[in-house]
């Protein structure tokens, strides 16, 4: 596993421009939100908001970090399935899921290091007072929930990619699902701004733990509330998705045709 981790890192570093430019997407996303919400907070409409402007900027800064940390490409298995490129892995003593998981961990670690550097430079340049009062307990909770968020994201993406077993072309499905997931996980708009019952329902879905809950730990010191319930729900989803992925993976092997020679 260490060799997979190291080689993936080495591979990414071979394409430094690609690495840096791919990070401009979440960075620009954060900038757009910063100016959009900045303009809104300058008006009287923001007076009843649940967040202060600093809290809102912190939320989007953390959401953009989470975007870089958890957005895996495990769904690429769809292409490999469709084009018969899984042969390499199926004929080697490699576990399909573990192999992708370690590659994604390596990839995300590297991307995160670069992104944090870029984001902190931007935050300093914009003089945003984000990440102000972070206690150790907040930090530890954030790390724990980020790991769970990464795993949920990884397995959701993987399962979506496995749709290729049923339909040949899954690109559009993946794109629209990604948009929906980003929306209902609070990446575009914090769920706190939705009607109260929406947040109450969403907390039982895995999406709630992708962006919204980890970002809330920073933004509203959510850790002061009971952490056990969200932790158990997030853990439940991780286990459920692992079991689903394994089950589908076994079926994948049966349905794999290895086309194109």
């Amino acid at each position: 596993m260490i060799s997979i981790f190291l080689l993936e890192g080495k591979k990414l570093l071979s394409y430094k421009f690609q690495l840096v430019f791919s990070l401009l997407h979440p960075l620009f996303g954060f900038l757009v939100q910063y100016y959009l919400w900045g303009a809104l907070y300058a008006t009287q409409y923001a007076s009843g908001m649940s967040y202060s402007d600093d809290q809102m900027f912190t939320y989007y800064a953390v959401a953009s970090i989470l975007f870089v940390m958890i957005k895996t490409n495990s769904g690429m298995i769809a292409n490999e399935f469709k084009n018969g490129l899984l042969d390499n892995e199926l004929v080697r003593p490699i576990n399909l899921i573990k192999y992708r998981l370690w590659r994604s961990i390596s990839e995300r670690c590297l991307y995160t290091v670069f992104y944090l550097a870029m984001l902190f430079l931007l935050v300093a340049a914009l003089k945003i007072s984000a990440f102000g009062d972070i206690s150790l307990i907040h930090l530890v909770s954030f790390v724990v929930f980020t790991i769970l968020s990464f795993l949920i994201s990884f397995f959701l993406d993987f399962i979506t990619g496995l749709l290729a077993m049923a339909i040949d072309e899954v690109w559009a499905v993946q794109a629209i699902l990604s948009f929906i997931v980003n929306f209902i996980s609070g990446y575009y708009i914090p769920l706190l701004l939705f009607p109260g019952h929406i947040e109450a329902i969403f907390q039982f879905t895995p999406f709630y733990y992708l962006f919204y809950f980890p970002a809330q730990i920073f933004t509203l010191s959510r850790i002061d509330q009971s952490i056990m319930k969200p932790l158990l729900i997030a853990l439940f989803w991780v286990f459920a998705l692992v079991i689903m992925s394994n089950g589908i993976c076994k079926r994948l092997s049966n349905g794999y045709s290895s086309y194109a020679g």
Binding site: K10, S14, Y15, D87, V91
Partner: peptide, 13 residues
């Protein structure tokens, strides 16, 4: 397995 028409190696490494 060696398949001449499909690379078994990682092209980026």
């Amino acid at each position: 397995l060696v398949a001449g028409n499909k690379s078994q190696l990682n092209p980026d490494l």
